[in-house]
Nucleic acid binder design. Sequence first.
DNA 1: GTAAATAGTTAGACTAGACTAACAATTATT
DNA 2: AATAATTGTTAGTCTAGTCTAACTATTTAC
Lengths: 217, 217
Amino acid sequence: MNSLNEENYLKALLNLSLADGEVNVKDLSKHLNIKMPSVTSMMKKMAEKGWVHYESYKPLRLTEQGKKEAALIIRKHRLTEMFLVEKMGFRWDEVHDIAEQIEHVKAPEFFAKMDELLEFPKFDPHGSPIPDKNGTLVWATWVKLSECEPGDEVKIVAVTKSSEEFLKFLNSREIALGLEMTIISIEPFDKSMVVRYKNHEAETLSATVCERLLVSK
Amino acid sequence: MNSLNEENYLKALLNLSLADGEVNVKDLSKHLNIKMPSVTSMMKKMAEKGWVHYESYKPLRLTEQGKKEAALIIRKHRLTEMFLVEKMGFRWDEVHDIAEQIEHVKAPEFFAKMDELLEFPKFDPHGSPIPDKNGTLVWATWVKLSECEPGDEVKIVAVTKSSEEFLKFLNSREIALGLEMTIISIEPFDKSMVVRYKNHEAETLSATVCERLLVSK
DNA sequence: GTAAATAGTTAGACTAGACTAACAATTATT
DNA sequence: AATAATTGTTAGTCTAGTCTAACTATTTAC
């Protein structure tokens, strides 16, 4: 049985390794808001348990087992987010913190029921894929908005690193999943984009924003 | 902020004090499956925090503050049980353990939403009252089935000390909340009751069972 | 009203998981 | 290549909460 604590480490490890490839102690420490020595000692413990490969001074890597465990927690998190939005009427920017807590609930039948009531969703409210029951997680081959060209017509399919503030920003610009937009121009100086969609004739999106929006063409 | 641990102690204290009047260390120890010395030391800690009145060798009593805190946790538990049954399709005998975990979730908006979706229920699926937002808990003036007389026509309104096994037993006898039954006789020897309801012409209920069923006449 | 049984407490050890301070390895900079 | 900056580790401390063993108070039984 893994403790709440270990679960948080696992999840952070998977999230960070998805985003940046490898994970180092510093990042994990920052992400979890736990000092580095504590992280090191937890990594040793988790290495014993077979969740991570740990070697002094080397980057951290999850084992296959660890990846699976982590994905199953992320599955619970994302199913919960979807349930909160679809069945309870929360907005997409409200659900993260609640799901953060519910994801640690141990009752499999609870999540199975959510899954069923939601008719086995493949994505959460932010467009992130929900790992399957075996802990398999596949990202669709979407591209970042920042990688697109002027003239491209794209559809928003997912949001990465979705903090509450970021989602509220998107709300304020009426940007949501499924929205189609046309790229008008890219400012070479700061890589910000001017885009057109719905009744927004020329909205400017910073590079930071464009980095975090995934689209399909 | 109270820890998960403290929350469990609080809840146990309230539950035991409702059932038996006063709470002693032994009972609490048994109920929580924690050895007596650990309970003693936790009681001292909780006394410092102002949740319990603690004096060596005296029975334990919750303070008003403690009662309120405990009732608010029980509120979360019972709202959750109701939600699981009414909105997610679980049976009344399946929900206790799940609710036991969800009750520790910190997000007030989550429980507020449940409350709203359930249209502000007053009772949980076992007929126990749901404390209000201020932590006020009132038991209706129902009587135990065991206190009724032959000839009485009663309606089951609540189940106390509802373990999963007990609820499954009730299911197997088709006994549910709202059921009306007539008391045919009481066996003086073991206080078991013979009752009639629906298509059950003469069902025998042990004293243990009758103790745990609350009815209105 | 004394002895036995039960309930409660104290003392001290243990674990998980955090922290700080000090040191060591690695990487970056000139 | 030498030094500085960054990253990671070790050692040791702390807190919450558990436990066992030994002792004490209270209650029950004769």
